[in-house]
Amino acid sequence: DVEPGKFYKGVVTRIEKYGAFINLNEQVRGLLRPRDMISLRLENLNVGDEIIVQAIDVRPEKREIDFKYIP
């Protein structure tokens, strides 16, 4: 289970104008929005990159997770 405030290693699987989709595993995916990136820009991410993200909002009923990147 993903818990708000905890850090997780994930893989960038898709990049859109509104953010990057990060997979923690095959069943768990969330969104990293540009506003939640500190010292990292969306255009510097590539599909396949491994990054450490912090879960900031977890909505299991909608199967949605918002992430934050903190270097």
Rank of each mutant, 00 (worst) to 15 (best):
V2K: 03
F21A: 03
L24Q: 00
P60S: 11
R63F: 14
G5N: 08
I65P: 02
L45E: 00
G5P: 03
I70A: 13
I56V: 12
D57L: 10
E64D: 06
V12D: 00
E43P: 06
R41P: 05
E64F: 13
K68G: 14
G10R: 01
S39Y: 11
E26F: 14
K17G: 10
E43F: 10
F7R: 08
L31V: 06
A55V: 15
F67W: 10
K9M: 11
E43D: 13
G10W: 13
L32F: 01
M37W: 02
F7M: 09
D49L: 08
P34L: 11
L40A: 07
I15T: 03
E3W: 11
D36L: 05
V58W: 08
E16R: 10
G30W: 03
R63H: 14
P34K: 13
D49P: 02
N44V: 10
V28Y: 10
D57K: 14
R63N: 15
G19A: 07
F21C: 05
F21Y: 15
V47Y: 06
L24V: 09
E16L: 12
Y18T: 05
E16M: 13
V2L: 09
I38E: 13
R35C: 06
T13P: 00
Y18D: 05
K6E: 09
A20K: 01
D36G: 04
E50I: 15
L24H: 02
P4F: 10
E3Y: 14
L32Q: 01
R33F: 03
N23I: 08
G19M: 04
R63E: 13
N25E: 05
D57S: 15
I38Y: 11
P4K: 15
I52S: 06
V58S: 08
R63T: 08
Q54H: 05
I51E: 00
E43S: 12
E43R: 11
D49R: 05
R35M: 11
G30R: 01
V11A: 06
N23S: 14
N44Y: 11
E64P: 04
E64Q: 14
T13W: 09
I70T: 12
V53H: 00
V12R: 00
F21E: 05
Y8I: 02
V11Y: 13
G19R: 04
R35I: 09
V2T: 05
V47E: 08
R14C: 06
F67E: 01
P34Q: 13
V28T: 13
D1Q: 14
V28D: 09
L24A: 02
I38K: 11
D1F: 15
K62Y: 10
N46K: 15
V47N: 04
D66E: 06
K62S: 12
I52M: 11
V11K: 13
G10Q: 02
E26T: 14
E61L: 10
F67D: 01
P71M: 08
I22K: 00
I51T: 01
V28H: 09
R41A: 12
R41Y: 11
K62D: 10
T13Y: 08
K68R: 15
P34A: 12
P34R: 11
